[in-house]
């Protein structure tokens, strides 16, 4: 019975996103822009670029995901649908998880698909590009899950609420560290299983632990 609602929320969010294309493009454009700006600032020395590639691409992905998260609850909050969702006979954390998954499909997956293009610009070989995509595939859902908590806490705020949500970025540090470390290990030829397992552990943690605080935070913001 809950699964029907879970699916309904995902389908609705995807439908809304495709009818409202601009949001979709924003986060991807931001990601491409930030990644391609760096060589202009740092110089085109390929050895240097290859060295900073994992960090730059990952920080850009992290910020792109975070900026697009703002839309996760904002539009529903403004037109009253958030109340409708909170007052449905289904557990709120389940529906929140559905919304986060829909958001991940709209931002996380496109970022992962575009990353190889940009990695090529930074002179990464195919094997490290594969690891880059793997870390993005596992890492972006964690970013969406943790970011959702901050967004839920600040959705009700008028002034400067969005900037406040940035203060959840410290929680992104472990994901950033293990993801970039995995890519560096691959470039250096070391096995990457250790870092990847850590990322999977973080994903499992985020999947189980973050919907509940997000749901409670939404109730807070509405009361």
């Amino acid at each position: 019975m809950h699964l029907r609602a879970f699916g309904a929320v995902i389908v609705r969010d995807l439908l809304l996103a495709f009818r409202h294309k601009s949001e979709l493009v924003n986060s991807i454009a931001f990601f491409i822009l930030v990644v391609s700006l760096f060589p202009l600032g740092v110089g085109a020395d390929i050895a240097l670029l290859r060295k900073i590639a994992p960090g730059v691409i990952w920080v850009a992905a992290l910020l792109a995901t975070f900026l697009s998260l703002d839309q996760l609850f904002r539009s529903d909050y403004e037109d009253g649908c958030l109340e409708l969702i909170l007052m449905s006979p289904h557990p709120v954390s389940l529906i929140v998880l559905a919304k986060i998954m829909a958001h991940w499909m709209l931002t996380g997956v496109p970022l992962t698909l575009i990353a190889p293009l940009l990695a090529g610009m930074y002179g990464l070989e195919n094997s490290s590009i594969a690891v880059l995509m793997l870390t993005l595939l596992i890492g972006t859902p964690i970013l969406s899950l943790i970011g959702a908590i901050a967004i839920a806490l600040t959705v009700g705020l008028r002034k400067g609420g969005v900037m406040l949500a940035l203060l959840i970025l410290p929680f992104y540090v472990p994901v950033l560290i293990f993801a970039t470390a995995a890519i560096d290990a691959q470039i250096a030829g070391f096995p990457v299983s250790g870092q990847i397992n850590m990322l999977l552990a973080l994903l499992a943690l985020a999947l189980t632990l973050s919907p509940w605080p997000t749901a409670v935070a939404l109730k807070m913001s509405l009361s």
Partner: peptide, 12 residues
Amino acid sequence: SVAILALVGVVN
């Protein structure tokens, strides 16, 4: 809300 963020923080 602060209590929730603190709780999430203490786990992280």
